[in-house]
Structures are given as structure tokens and as C-alpha cells.
């Protein structure tokens, strides 16, 4: 007993292990007016994502003749953070909207819907660090819920460094006080990283550790996304065959 205690001396501020995700809950089909939607709680993040389309692109001149366009909007509610934030999109919000789009696009069969647009709107109701990764997780489920054909699911979470330890899925405090933050999105079946950012300071070895730890986290989230979809859409083909 005493020897075990020594080994687990390092404690994260919320008591998690270094490689442990925050509790995640994903629900699909939560917005009646959207073509697809999802709600995610990842730690204390609370986020709703609605997908509209494929639908006609307005203005029409922005339509791409041979493929669908994706538009993403990452938006934080004024009451989602500690000091109230302005509802106008900040530069940060614009950048996150863009990287979210780049994270999701590789998974979607865009060529199936020429000239049209798929709008992905993420509303952050409560923020707790790692909102961009949570948005991607929910947006993926919402896209599937909208019936849009996908090559793979995109799962996303961050890894980083705090108190010289490499840790998975940073909470708000770790995000602010930590030494580095590396958000990653990953398509498990295709083995491709579709989101990769970093700020802070890491050696190249630590960076590689962070990326592989984040990918491990993505694999766990992938299962949770599948469960959320199964819950709404029933058994998968394999399971039907098994029975």
C-alpha cells in the first residue's frame, strides 16, 4: 500500500492520472431544426453543435463547381467564460473556426455535393479549456447525424505539459498555468492528424510524446463518439450479424 502511494505522488489539480481524459458525454440529434446536431460535455465544457446542409450556397459566387464548401463558426456565449466576453467574434474565434474546418474537411466526401455548402455552427455555452477539441468531437457526431457521408470520424483532444509532466486533455487551469498545450485531431481509421497546433515550450522529444499521447486520447474519444451514434441509430452491421 505504502509503495503504491509513492508511485502515484504526482496529482493533477482535479485528481486525474496523467493519461486520463476528463469525463465525456456526447449526445446526438439534440436540435430539432438542424439537419444534424450534437451536444458534448467534456469536463465542464458544454457545447452545442448544429449542422445545416448540404444546402445551396449563398452568395452563389462562392460555390465551388466540383465540390461542397464547409463553413465553420466557433462562437463563445458571453456568459461562457469568467469575465463576460463580447459576443462579437474575436481573432481567436476566427482562427479556431478555420482550424476546425481544416480538421473536419478531410473526413467529408465533399465531391458528392458540388456547388453546395455545409454549415457547422458550434456554440460554446460553458468553456473549460480545450473547447476547440470538444467542438470537433461534437461536430463530427453532428455531421454523421446529418447523414453526410464521411470517410472516418474525427476525434480530438489535447496533450500538454505541466510541472514537467506530459499530461492528457488539459483542463482550464492546466491550459492557463501549464507549460505547453498541443491540441490534436485524428482520424483513427485513416491514421491522419487533421488538427495540430501548439503553444508553449517543448523539446522535440516531448512534442512527439504529446502527439502520441493525444492520439491515444483520440482513440478513446472515437469509441465514445461511436457509442453516442449507436445509441441513436441502433446496432452496427457487425453487431447485427453477430446476433
Amino acid at each position: 500500500m505504502s509503495s503504491r502511494k509513492k508511485k502515484t505522488k504526482f496529482k493533477r489539480y482535479d485528481g486525474r492520472e496523467t493519461n486520463e481524459l476528463r469525463p465525456i458525454k456526447i449526445e446526438s440529434g439534440v436540435l430539432p431544426n438542424a439537419d444534424g446536431s450534437a451536444y458534448i460535455e467534456m469536463g465542464r465544457n458544454k457545447i452545442l453543435v448544429g449542422v445545416f446542409g448540404p444546402r445551396e450556397m449563398h452568395p452563389k459566387r462562392f460555390a465551388k463547381p466540383n465540390m461542397a464548401s464547409i463553413r465553420c463558426r466557433y462562437h463563445m456565449a458571453p456568459f461562457s467564460t469568467d469575465p463576460r466576453r463580447s459576443p462579437a467574434p474575436s481573432r481567436r474565434d476566427n482562427e479556431i473556426s478555420m482550424v476546425m474546418r481544416y480538421a473536419l474537411e478531410p473526413a467529408i466526401f465533399l465531391e458528392r455535393y458540388p456547388k453546395s455548402v455545409i454549415d457547422i455552427y458550434a456554440e460554446i455555452l460553458e468553456a473549460d479549456g480545450g473547447t476547440r477539441t470538444a467542438c470537433i468531437n461534437a461536430a463530427t457526431v453532428a455531421l454523421v447525424d446529418a447523414g453526410i457521408p464521411m470517410r472516418d470520424l474525427v476525434a480530438s483532444c489535447a496533450a500538454g505539459k505541466m510541472d514537467e509532466k506530459i499530461i492528457l486533455d488539459l483542463g482550464d487551469y492546466e491550459d492557463k498555468e501549464g507549460q505547453a498545450d498541443v491540441p490534436v485531431a485524428y482520424m483513427p481509421k485513416l491514421g491522419k492528424v487533421t488538427l495540430l497546433q501548439m503553444d508553449g515550450i517543448l523539446s522535440t522529444d516531448e512534442l512527439e510524446q504529446c502527439i502520441s499521447l493525444a492520439i491515444d486520447g483520440c482513440m478513446q474519444i472515437y469509441e465514445i463518439q461511436r457509442e453516442a451514434l449507436k445509441k441513436k441509430y441502433g446496432l452496427t452491421e457487425e453487431e447485427v450479424e453477430e446476433k
Binding site: P106, V193, E208
Partner: peptide, 24 residues
């Protein structure tokens, strides 16, 4: 000091973990 201080991936495709290592 050969520390990484920022990373940004952009564009509508993904990188494999090996490609990322090569880039670094």
C-alpha cells in the same frame, strides 16, 4: 535551444504521425 515554441497545421488534408516527425 531546439525547443518547439509554436505549431500550426493548416489546409484540408491530414498528416500521418510519421510525416509530422519528418517535418519536425
Amino acid at each position: 535551444d531546439e525547443n518547439v515554441c509554436a505549431i500550426q497545421k493548416s489546409g484540408s488534408e491530414g498528416f500521418t504521425p510519421d510525416e509530422i516527425k519528418k517535418c519536425i
